[in-house]
Design a protein around this nucleic acid. Structure first.
Length: 849
DNA sequence: GCAAGGTC
């Protein structure tokens, strides 16, 4: 029997789809990666009896990144990132998705792709095909199909199954282009800015000065509002404050039809006219029945808006809570744009679950018995049904915030099926002389949905006293009040979410991430009322872009890129042409940005302090011997003002002095990094940490136990030896070079490659007659290069007849001589010749305890 | 140490 493999975008959807397609008759098992399940059932496919296997991925299978050295911030000029080679790699290393898919596709005959019906989903289709088609059985007919569905309902899913189409390469490619553009542009600008400003200022308070086509315009909105507040000039205006007393004794304030005037003279003129006429005449009274409409069904961005403005929970945290409620089965899938319930959605069934709730159970019972309202028409984005409760929960089931989110989602759901709120609005129209005034009151007719969404309930407005036409009432008083226009307030998170949604910046899933990013990078702070106040850093960044190239921060930038990419998706333009065109434009923008960075720097100068002015003297520089300053702000680093050089340090720990000991390689004073009293700690040389002394050693790498190439660990394990090629040097074993061991002298650039296939080498305390220390080498018998395949030998690499032939000695051009460490001259100034080897070893031993 | 997009 043939097998049809079917793949959905996420485990929950695979389950829903399989239930529908198998009519609930299926066998399920967990997949090899622990995250995805496989649901199997029998059925017909193209008139043939087959076994269906429905499973899923977890979002994207692959993501893109630069290859090898292009991931290094030190070796690559950011400008190169616009042309650097790019590779696809597994999106999540621990899920082993390609392997899982290959295993399940083994021996399958057909593939049906049930990925979400958007461009990202189409792109994942091709990622799935890449992993599966090669291991599937070859059948004569076409074997790959795409299901197109617009709602997760019985009819829609079954119809999609009967009308399979082909995956759309154009749509998938538009996503490939987007990924590549985001990567190249984001990383190039981020690396350049970070290095430029971190190298100059000591109090930026952000480890990263990032740029991104979504996060930067998001920040732009916050700064735009800040600028409006700053440039706001309050203007005085005047309102007329008129009060009358109804014959029943009730005071009533009247609203002026002109509302307010900005000219005091004219306002005074009207006031005098009003005062002259002394009494108000009732012109007429109107009554209108008004409704406050029940909400439409809930989607993600609305949930996030209310969570922020109503519950005081930020979007990022709200999403985390919603996801947990979802995986625990309390609510439906929380990432959706749809605000319309599917046709056959069991609204009453969901309501019935809530009948026993102590919070709203009575209301729900009443609603069910009186009949529910038809939900207001929303829009169907074709992704997932709106967010609804899935089972009853009680307050004690969750922590406080989770309960608030569940409580809101459930009340919102009930409200969508409740009557509108109805009230009667009464307006009394007055004339005082020729000026018109009104007063209004309302009377609740039916609270409707506001009985369950209580925060929207109308205030208990006392009824207006009854006025009759032509009735005249003497004024209690009439006077002008001077007021001032007030600046707008900082943007609330809820407003920002709306702006992002409106401008197509981010998606329902990524909007919280972008907002979180600009907070974490310290570009904005959340102030009371969940408003976003930009920091000096955020402000100078945005103003800087505006000065150099305002396109970079424009709120339309994302949507204009998307527009270009849509041409690929629609098959109207060639993938490579559009992509290359966009890359070229941003490459030019990047070059222009770099050339004009001074424009932004001038703004930084005003807000931030240069490295030289920050921090306290800490340890000595190995080059100039002057004290370097420790910059405490993130990222902590050492700065030498006289050499104008900055040395980064390992982060997230404390940096202390380390016994004023110096690195034997470059004379920089060592520092001790530690993570608190009981945490990890290791000494390191600031210079070696930034300029690894060995060619193939990564920055920050060294001994396995710490990061120093000549640390206590490597000294005690492998040792250091006197170099006999020069009179000052020390031979150091490169910790990272085994099993092709390498030693190098820090002074004369001699490099010794030796003893290939030795499993271990170490330096002995004993010395050879030549002065160098003896080396002990250990081999496995099979690979031994020693006579008679001996496993161990001790000797001097310069003189020993057995070891000498196994050693290749040469002078490197790039090992130490290009390192900026202190050169050979100074140390010998006192005419101190070559010390006795033993002395040197004990001298070294003093460095490391 | 970078982006944004999926999702767990």
């Amino acid at each position: 029997m043939r097998t049809v493999l079917m793949v959905a975008e996420k485990p929950s959807l695979a389950l829903s789809l399989a239930k529908i397609l198998s009519n609930g008759n299926m066998n399920s098992r967990k997949g090899s990666n622990g995250a995805c399940s496989i649901h199997e059932y029998r059925g017909k496919f193209n008139g043939e009896n087959v076994t269906f296997k429905m499973t899923s991925v977890c979002g994207h299978v692959m993501s893109c990144d630069f290859v090898g050295k292009y991931n290094s911030w030190d070796k690559v000029d950011p400008a190169e990132l616009f042309n650097a080679p790019i590779q696809k790699k597994e999106a999540s290393a621990n899920l082993h998705m390609p392997q899982f898919l290959r295993r399940e596709a083994q021996g399958a005959d057909y593939l049906v792709l049930w990925l979400d019906c958007d461009k990202e989903g189409e792109n994942i289709c091709f990622e799935v095909m890449e992993c599966t088609v090669c291991v599937m059985n070859r059948v004569p007919s076409q074997q790959v199909y795409r299901a197109r569905f617009s709602a997760i309902t019985d009819t829609d899913i079954k119809r999609a199954m009967q009308n399979l189409v082909s995956p759309n390469k154009n749509e998938a490619q538009s996503v490939d282009a987007r990924q590549e553009l985001d990567l190249r542009i984001g990383c190039a600008f981020t690396r350049y800015q970070t290095k430029f400003f971190q190298g100059k200022y000591g109090d930026l308070d952000s480890t990263l000065i990032s740029y991104g086509p979504c996060q930067t315009p998001t920040l732009g909105f916050c700064v735009e509002r800040h600028d409006k507040i700053q440039s706001f000039k309050p203007e005085p205006y005047w309102i007329m404050d008129v009060q009358i007393t109804h014959p029943n004794g009730k005071s009533v304030k009247l609203d002026w039809e002109r509302v307010r005037l900005f000219d005091k003279e004219i306002a005074l003129m009207f006031l005098n006219m009003v005062k002259d006429s002394e009494e108000a005449r009732v012109v007429n009274t109107t009554q209108k029945e008004k409704t406050k409409a029940r909400p439409i069904a809930l989607n993600t961005v609305e949930l996030l808006r209310v969570a922020s403005s109503g519950l005081g929970i930020g979007p990022h945290h709200a999403m985390q809570i919603a996801e947990r409620l979802y995986t625990q089965g309390y609510i439906s899938y929380p990432r959706t744009e749809t605000t319309q319930y599917p046709e056959n959605f069991d609204l009453k069934g969901v309501l019935r679950q809530q009948q026993s709730s102590p919070n709203w159970g009575d209301y729900v019972s009443k609603l069910l018995s009186e009949g529910i309202q038809k939900a207001k028409k929303g829009s169907d984005a074709g992704d997932h049904p709106p967010i609804t409760p899935m089972k009853l929960a009680r307050e004690g089931d969750f922590d406080h915030d989770s309960w608030k989110v569940y409580d809101y989602i459930t009340r919102h759901f009930i409200a969508t099926l409740s009557p509108d709120c109805k009230y009667l609005q009464t307006t009394v129209h007055f004339e005082i002389g020729l000026e018109k005034f009104t007063t209004t009151g309302h009377q609740l007719l039916d609270p409707g949905y506001t009985a369950v969404m209580t925060w929207q309930a109308l205030g208990n407005d006392e009824d207006l006293p009854k006025f009759t036409k032509e009735q005249t009432i003497t004024l209690d008083h009439a006077r002008l009040s001077e007021r001032q226009t007030s600046p707008p307030d900082y943007l609330t998170e809820a407003e920002l979410i709306s702006l992002m949604e409106k401008n197509g910046i981010g998606t329902d899933a990524s909007i919280p991430v972008h907002i979180n990013n600009i907070c974490e990078r310290n570009y904005v702070n959340i102030i009371s009322g969940r408003k976003l106040k930009p920091t000096p850093l955020g402000i100078v960044l945005v103003h800087g872009y505006q000065k150099i190239d305002s396109d970079l921060v424009l709120c339309t930038m994302r949507s204009s890129i998307e527009q270009q990419l849509n041409l690929i998706a629609q098959g109207k333009a060639n993938f490579f042409d559009v992509k290359q065109h966009a890359i070229d434009i941003f490459h030019r923008k990047f070059k222009y940005f770099v050339e004009n960075i001074n424009g932004m720097d001038q703004l930084f100068e005003v807000s931030f302090s240069p490295l030289a002015a920050i921090g306290k003297p800490f340890t000595r520089c190995g080059k100039c011997r002057r004290y370097m300053k420790l910059i405490p702000a993130k990222p902590s680093r050492l700065h030498c003002a006289s050499c104008d050089e900055t040395f980064t340090l390992p982060q997230n720990g404390n940096i202390k002095l380390y016994k004023e000991l110096k690195c034997p390689l470059d004379d920089f004073e060592l520092v001790l990094w530690s993570t608190g009293p009981k945490g990890k700690s290791y000494p390191l040389c600031p210079y070696c940490y930034n300029n690894p002394p060995f060619n193939d050693m990564r920055k920050g790498m060294g001994c396995n136990e710490c990061t120093h190439p000549t640390c206590a660990h490597s000294f005690s394990k492998n040792g250091v030896s006197e170099c006999v090629e020069c009179d000052r040097g020390i031979l150091v074993i490169d910790q990272s070079s085994g099993p092709k061991w390498k030693m190098a002298c820090n002074k004369c650039n001699v490099v010794i490659h030796f003893l290939e296939h030795a499993t271990k080498i170490s330096v002995q305390e004993d010395t050879c007659d030549c002065g160098s220390n003896l080396i002990e080498a250990t081999f496995t018998k099979a690979k031994s290069k020693l006579p008679d395949n001996a496993e161990e030998h001790t000797g001097c690499v310069f003189c020993d007849p057995v070891l000498k032939p196994l050693v290749e000695k040469h002078h490197a051009t790039s090992f130490f001589q290009n390192r900026g460490g202190r050169g050979g001259g100074a140390r010998g100034r006192g005419g101190r010749g070559r010390g006795k080897p033993k002395d040197k070893m004990s001298q070294l031993a003093a460095y490391f305890v």
